[in-house]
Simulated scan of single mutants.
Amino acid sequence: MTDTPLLKVRDISKFYGARIGCQNVSFDLWPGEVLAIVGESGSGKTTLLNCLATRLMPTSGAVEYRMRDGQMRDLSRMSEAERRFLMRTDWGFVHQNPADGLRMAVSAGANVGERLMAVGERHYGNIRETAGSWLGRVEISVDRIDDQPRDFSGGMRQRLQIARNLVTSPRLIFMDEPTGGLDVSVQARLLDLLRGLVQDLGLSAIIVTHDLAVARLLSHRMMVMKDGLVIEQGLTDRVLDDPREAYTQLLVSSILQV
């Protein structure tokens, strides 16, 4: 493992007028590490995720990302075109509602193929073959390659969104409540799939979730947020098995059923 973080976050704050979205958040994310950001609705976790993924510009603070050439770049100093290219190639973003991360009126294969074209692939046969291979990896039958996502179940849409994000071999994936809104049995399959893919591909990931069981299954490290502030952080098992803050203790006792 490299001795340089993949992502360096320093004193990130986001304010909406007088209201705090998140405040003074700092951490490093290492290659191959999965970080869970947990907390109740309104805790600031999604605001923070969107600031990290450049979907929102923070009020203050800095986020630096280590590019493939090893250079650390301040995301706020990148051009809009550079940030868009990063999002299409080296990063992925998995939305809670897959319709927000898919083009619902084009085929499953085209949804995956678009990301390949963003990194320069132009050979139709290669694109279709790779798309079909990735559908198989996320447990979607290849004979559905020409079907549109609108004809898929919620769980299949979410798996398709994952394939679309991972086909370009990104190094960092952002996930916003990836299992939210799915039936429990579908959640379990999706979590097993995600865990396997993250391990197989050596991905770094930042996952926002209110479900501490999801955090335990997927993440190495965890940050607990309340009222826009990080109130506790550490190795996931340590935080869940020996929470130090009263709020974390309450979360664990009331939500976590393991």
Rank of each mutant, 00 (worst) to 15 (best):
S169I: 07
A108C: 14
R159K: 05
G125Q: 11
G132E: 09
L135Y: 12
M156I: 07
G109L: 05
M117E: 14
R144F: 10
S169Y: 14
D147V: 13
R159G: 01
L166W: 06
R159T: 05
L116T: 03
R115C: 13
L172M: 04
G154V: 07
S141Y: 06
N165Y: 00
A131S: 08
G109E: 01
W134R: 04
N126H: 15
R171S: 12
R159S: 03
E114R: 10
H123L: 12
P170L: 01
G125N: 11
E114H: 11
R171A: 08
I173Q: 04
I145D: 01
R115L: 07
H123Q: 14
V106R: 11
A108V: 13
E139D: 11
Q148P: 03
I140T: 03
M156L: 11
H123A: 13
P149A: 09
H123R: 15
S169L: 14
F174E: 04
S133F: 13
R164P: 04
V106S: 10
T168A: 13
A163M: 09
R128P: 04
G136N: 13
F152T: 09
D147I: 09
E139S: 13
S169T: 15
I173Y: 06
V119Q: 10
V167C: 09
L166K: 06
M117W: 08
H123S: 13
S141L: 11
S133N: 10
Q148V: 12
G125L: 10
L116E: 00
A131Y: 01
Q161H: 06
P170Y: 01
S133L: 12
G125E: 11
I145W: 04
I140C: 01
I140H: 02
E114C: 08
L116M: 13
R150F: 15
Y124T: 09
P170A: 02
R137M: 06
A163R: 07
A110T: 12
A108E: 00
S141D: 14
Q158D: 03
S169Q: 15
V142T: 14
V106C: 08
P149K: 10
I127E: 00
Q148W: 07
R171L: 02
E129V: 07
R157G: 09
A118N: 10
R144L: 12
P170C: 03
E114T: 10
A163H: 07
